[in-house]
Simulated scan of single mutants.
Amino acid sequence: MIRAAYAEIPTGQVHYREWIPEKEARRPLLCLHPAPFSSAFFTTAMPALGEARRIIAPDYPGYGSSSPCGEAPSIEDYAASILQFLVCLELDGPVDVLGFHTGCLVGAEMQLQSVDAIGALVLVDVPYFLGEVQERMSAQAGAPLKLTTELESIASLWQSGIAVKAPLMGMDRAVELLAEQLRAHPNAHLAFKAAFTYPCEERFARLPGPAAIIATKSMLSDVTAEAARAAAASALFIKADDITRGVFEEGAPQIAARIDAALTQLEDQKGE
Score class of each variant (00 low, 15 high):
151 L>C: 00
194 A>V: 05
138 S>E: 12
174 A>P: 02
121 L>C: 10
203 R>E: 04
216 T>E: 00
135 E>Y: 02
110 M>K: 12
139 A>S: 13
168 L>Q: 14
91 L>D: 10
198 Y>S: 09
204 F>R: 09
179 A>I: 04
197 T>H: 11
171 M>P: 00
103 G>C: 10
171 M>W: 14
173 R>C: 04
100 F>K: 00
134 Q>C: 07
128 Y>Q: 02
228 A>R: 13
181 Q>K: 14
167 P>Q: 10
91 L>P: 13
130 L>N: 09
160 S>Q: 12
103 G>N: 05
146 K>F: 01
114 S>C: 13
159 Q>L: 02
208 P>A: 14
195 A>E: 11
181 Q>A: 01
126 V>P: 07
224 T>E: 05
212 A>F: 02
131 G>E: 10
140 Q>S: 13
137 M>I: 04
95 V>L: 14
124 V>I: 14
110 M>L: 07
189 H>W: 03
208 P>N: 09
164 V>P: 01
160 S>Y: 07
201 E>I: 07
186 P>N: 06
144 P>I: 06
184 A>E: 09
155 A>L: 01
175 V>N: 02
139 A>W: 01
106 V>A: 09
175 V>F: 03
212 A>G: 06
179 A>D: 11
210 P>R: 10
191 A>T: 05
155 A>M: 05
129 F>C: 07
191 A>E: 02
226 E>N: 09
131 G>C: 09
207 L>I: 09
184 A>T: 14
147 L>T: 06
229 R>N: 12
145 L>T: 13
189 H>R: 04
193 K>Y: 07
149 T>W: 08
228 A>E: 10
139 A>G: 14
92 D>K: 04
152 E>M: 05
154 I>H: 02
163 A>I: 11
194 A>R: 03
125 D>S: 08
188 A>R: 02
185 H>G: 00
197 T>W: 00
226 E>F: 01
